[in-house]
Design a protein around this nucleic acid. Structure first.
Lengths: 161, 161, 161, 161
DNA sequence: TTTT
DNA sequence: TTTT
């Protein structure tokens, strides 16, 4: 069973950082990935792909990416469902990022902070690059609030979505 | 802008084959891809990923794959939306397959047709293998009913979904 | 920096299992992946791709795959070089598998052991599927004999290649 | 048979543009892709991956990428062999790019041409983006000089490698 | 033979 | 509900 996704695109908005009840950071963002062809009206469209990332990388994403940032994602497709406030079952398809790469020199996508010269020492390295974090993926706890249909006794405000 | 997906999983049901108003075949199916880890309850879950494939490959899928078949998909993630009968906007994330590979010897997933010896001459080759079809991808026409929000004057029965 | 490879093909020979000086299992095998198009002579060619896999999965590969087995690989491209017996520098490009999936029912590629009914309980699950093994990838030790140009004081027989 | 590669890395040198005897452009370049982990000496290493691209995209690569440019590649692994001047068989593993994406604002990797503001109108779009070029991949002619072991009556200078 |  |  192979499930592999690689994306490069731009954030449609600033990422959102939340924490699970046990304090695990989760960031979500949507990547706009332009299609390599035009539609019948001759317009270039994009796909808007919801991405989720956990732990240290979630905090990196929140700190270094923002609306318009160019980013790369290596991960897998996840599907889940939940019942919304009206009692309807909602189905979600999203990409769980195992690594996220920041593809711009610092400030490049920021009108307020004009570009400094070249890549900075710190955030230019891919987020997936620190040794401790290598290949760890979502642990059972982190993923649980998405995977299960089980009731979890927390207030809405604690939920990452 | 990179958008690449590779999946290997099993069809949850027989594929559905439809035709666009201009007669282009489209097949849809859902792949169940087991996750490589267990949840907190110790159960193995799966992701259920909607896939779409066009033209000759759509017909191959309809002819050679069925519920339970093991298949590989190489494609890209597509997002689109439409308004349902209640006037609600529905968002869809699916995989548009550029090639689909049949990963089982003939009859392997079929209790009714007992396995013959080994792979048959015909359908053992990957669907993406015939020269004419090579790399052609969805043409503008084929894709149009998904891409556009434009009204199309056909009855519901003609729609591939 | 993204480096992602997904392959599905057949082993050209039985895999080779070796152990590093510190006892870490490494398996190597070559996957033949048929091209989806024909050459000018109208023949279908294949790419022959060297794959390397570590630890528990190396042992699984050695136990369950053999010449002709259909397998899937999810990993990354690695390049390395070494000096051969004649003092020439040899460059190697190979795929380091993070997970390997066995894509055939037991016995399917084996003329000697006739197929039993369907997938067996044990080896039908993808190799990357056991929880302990999840996402562990090559540790620094395992990878060292490939990455370094450093002399290692072991006899040829201990080397994985 | 699935064979899919996605890479993001930097060119180690300016790309080389050649033409086949029938005038088809081919560009080659090497991508340095940094590994997401350190070796036993605590150093970050890189993989150096030979890439080949054909036709219009070859010319785009030659025009817009240079030593140090950050680029994305979506393609497949190809293996081939040839006999060198000493009569030795040489095996080559390379990535045939189906699309190449330029991942930097104009001038970003160039000390001589200081960065202009943001992405330019022209080369900021992915190379794989023009409609004519969509999904065309290597045609049988283009690929032939790599695939065949057949003698080709051209001088060495005409060969793309 | 390698890039930031 | 979308990015350059």
């Amino acid at each position: 069973m192979i499930n592999r996704v690689v994306l490069v695109g731009r954030l449609t908005k600033d990422p959102e950082l939340r924490y699970t009840p046990n304090g695990v950071p989760v960031a979500t963002f949507t990547l706009a990935v332009n299609r390599p062809f035009s539609n019948q009206q001759g317009e270039r469209e994009a796909d808007f792909i919801l991405c989720v990332v956990w732990r240290k990388q979630a905090e990196n994403v929140a700190n270094f990416l923002k609306k318009g940032s160019l980013a790369g994602v290596d991960g897998r497709i996840q599907t889940r469902s939940y019942d919304n406030q009206e009692g309807r079952r909602v189905y979600v398809t999203e990409v769980v990022a195992e690594s996220v790469q920041f593809l711009e020199p610092r400030g490049a996508s920021n009108r307020q902070n004009p570009p400094s010269a070249g890549y900075p020492d710190f955030d230019a390295r891919p987020f997936g690059s620190d040794n401790q974090n290598q290949n760890q993926g979502p642990s059972r706890n982190e993923d649980s609030i998405f995977n299960s249909g089980q009731p979890i006794d927390i207030s809405d405000d604690d939920l990452p979505f």
